[in-house]
Structure formats: structure tokens, C-alpha cells
Design a protein around this nucleic acid. Structure first.
Length: 255
DNA sequence: ATGGTGGCCACGCCA
């Protein structure tokens, strides 16, 4: 079984890339972020033809998250009960006994900004939400664009990034608070080459120069972490013409 | 040099 996370930066633009990648990678479940479309524009038919059930929590222009699955998606939920939010950033569903929560965490723009304060409030809400989900579902996977690089080695140049947005201590503390619930950063269960990232700025030839960050993560509860056999970043879609600025992250399981 | 690239949408916002 494979559970993946991918920020596609507009699903309508990236649908051909997504369909090609689904065929090549054969993930069982995919959390998609930044669909940037309303539910009426979501390509249910194309994804069904590709063999995937889908659930979407969309809005116009910004944000928007979806779950794709080869098996039916059960008990779909589109908000965090404990945190009211007009922005569409969460979707959760149960697939074959595994609860999958897919999140698009607030970017935060700049440390100290209003959006940054919203990001920290949002992450506190996420912690509370996931704490309750873990009570209900021992097998929990949390896919997402977290917009947090957990450690200096998750940046191409700590001198540039440390203390700034995506890398500030309060953001990292909020990420650790999620792990403190009993979740594992699945990527760190395995060894990876230095400079393994999931996002590269479109500007300044960031991908070609590997000026990246690791900000997309699949967190796993203990039972799933114990069954996880590997985590990979798929660079192929990032090499294409008109790519998303993010690459897919795939966690693989024995079951 | 406070730029730069891209998506949305039609100008500025957001990342």
C-alpha cells in the first residue's frame, strides 16, 4: 500500500501531470493540496476513469484539498470541529481501516505578520483536531503541505532560512507538538541523501540548483509507522514542463 | 538589486 502527498498548485493546470503520475506511481491514497478550484470544476470523471474515488473540499482561486483513493472513501470530513475556518485546508476520510487526514497548512508569509499569527493559531487547532482523531482512529496518516521545514537539514541553506518563514522556532515547535501526539515523520524513519527536498521556488532556477526545502510530509501513528517500509520523493513530475513547485512524497507499507 | 516565477484572473493577491 502507498499513501502519497502532493501540492499540485492548481489541479486544472496540473491534471495531465497528475494522471500520468498516478499511472506510473500507482499510489493507493493521495492527499492533494492547492486544487485552487470549486467543487463544480473538480475533475471527478477523469479521476474515476483513472481508477480513483475522490473527495474534494474546494474554494475559488485559493487553497482547496482533495483525497484520491483506489478504495471507497468513507466518513469524509471537511473541517476541524475545534477550529472554525473559512479557508478550505482540511479533508479527512477512512480507507480500508486507515484514517487519512490531508492538510494544506497556512503559509504564513513572513514571521510576525498577521498571516503568521493565523498559521500558528491554525496549527494549534490542527493539533487539537489530530489529538481527537487519534483517539478515534489508531491507524492515522496525516498527509500534507505543512509549510514547515522541521530541521536545518531540511533546507538547502540554513544560513538563508533559519529563523525565517517556514523555518522559525515557533513553527517548528508546532510541528514537534504534532509529533508529540504520537505521530512519526515517516521520511525520518529511513535514511536519505542530504539535499532531499519536496519544494523548490520557481524563481532563480531553484529546482535545477536544488535550492529546496522539505515541507511536505506524511505523518504516521505508531501502528502505521511500524508497517512503513520506505518513503520516497518523486522528482520526475518536478522535471516536466509547467510543473508544480512541489514534488510528490510517497510512503509505502507492507499491507 | 527587497528583485525573481507562476496561478488566478484581469489587477493585485498569494505562494
Amino acid at each position: 500500500m502507498k499513501i502519497a502527498s502532493w501540492n499540485v498548485n492548481s489541479l486544472r493546470v496540473r491534471l495531465p501531470h497528475l494522471l500520468d503520475w498516478l499511472k506510473a506511481a500507482e499510489p493507493d491514497v493521495v492527499g492533494i493540496q492547492e486544487t485552487k478550484c470549486v467543487d463544480e470544476q473538480f475533475p471527478f470523471a477523469e479521476l474515476e476513469a483513472a481508477g480513483y474515488f475522490a473527495a474534494h473540499n474546494g474554494q475559488k482561486t485559493y487553497n482547496g484539498v482533495a483525497l484520491l483513493s483506489r478504495q471507497p472513501l468513507v466518513d469524509v470530513c471537511r473541517d476541524m470541529e475545534c477550529f472554525a475556518d473559512e479557508q478550505r485546508r482540511v479533508i479527512a476520510a477512512t480507507v480500508g481501516g486507515v484514517r487519512v487526514v490531508n492538510v494544506y497548512v497556512v503559509n504564513g508569509q513572513a514571521v510576525g505578520s498577521e498571516k503568521y499569527e493565523y498559521k500558528l493559531r491554525w496549527l494549534a487547532g490542527l493539533r487539537q483536531y489530530l489529538e481527537a482523531e487519534l483517539q478515534k482512529y489508531p491507524k492515522l496518516a496525516v498527509t500534507g503541505d505543512y509549510n514547515i521545514a522541521p530541521a536545518p537539514e531540511d533546507t538547502h541553506d540554513p544560513a538563508v532560512w533559519e529563523g525565517g518563514i517556514l523555518c522559525s522556532e515557533p513553527e517548528r515547535a508546532a510541528f514537534r507538538a504534532l509529533l508529540d501526539l504520537g505521530l512519526k515523520d515517516s521520511f525520518r524513519l529511513f535514511d536519505h541523501p542530504p539535499g532531499t527536498f519536496t519544494w523548490w521556488d520557481y524563481r532563480q532556477a531553484g529546482f535545477r540548483r536544488n535550492l529546496g526545502l522539505r515541507i511536505d510530509h506524511v505523518l504516521l501513528s505508531e501502528p502505521l509507522a511500524a508497517a512503513c517500509t520506505g518513503v520516497q520523493v518523486h522528482l520526475e513530475p518536478r522535471r516536466l514542463e509547467r510543473p508544480s513547485d512541489h514534488a510528490p512524497v510517497v510512503s509505502e507499507f507492507t499491507v
